[in-house]
């Protein structure tokens, strides 16, 4: 039960958590009833999923003895900056195409 063991356990837990989140995002993409609800699955769970994976990878490469390795953070930064942009563009495209919405949806959309 030494330091390296606990680091390894932490990395394993992080990558398992990350991939489970990515899977939940894809389940949401598959089972939710309309496009706007499906949009929530991937743009959220995948961002945190990749985030957890990246932190696991960062921990793993930083504790191998070859010095600190932080460049995996760039992927997370990039995804966090771009995920809202692509989600917004996809939502606008869907509004433009007047996709049908789930009947329970409250509130109105704007005419495009």
């Amino acid at each position: 039960m030494n330091f390296a063991f606990w680091i390894e356990a932490l990395v394993a837990a992080l990558i398992l958590a990350g991939s489970v989140f990515a899977l939940i995002g894809s389940i949401g993409l598959w089972k939710l009833p309309d496009f706007f609800m499906r949009l929530h699955g991937p743009t959220k769970a995948t961002t945190l999923g990749v985030g957890a994976l990246v932190i696991g990878s960062l921990l793993y490469f930083s504790t191998r003895g070859a010095g600190l390795s932080l460049h995996e953070l760039l992927i997370t930064i990039f995804l966090f900056l771009t995920a809202p942009v692509s989600a917004n563009l996809l939502a606008k495209a869907a509004l433009h195409q007047e996709l049908k919405r789930s009947k329970k949806t409250k509130g109105k959309v704007w005419p495009q």
Binding site: L29, F35, R38, P42, T46, V54, I75, L79
Partner: peptide, 22 residues
């Protein structure tokens, strides 16, 4: 619809990225 397919492709590339990190 088309936006659904684009969303699926978008998710697919993020998953591919995760697989490459793994």
């Amino acid at each position: 619809d088309l936006p659904d397919r684009i969303l699926a492709l978008d998710t697919l590339y993020i998953n591919a990225l995760a697989i490459i990190i793994l």
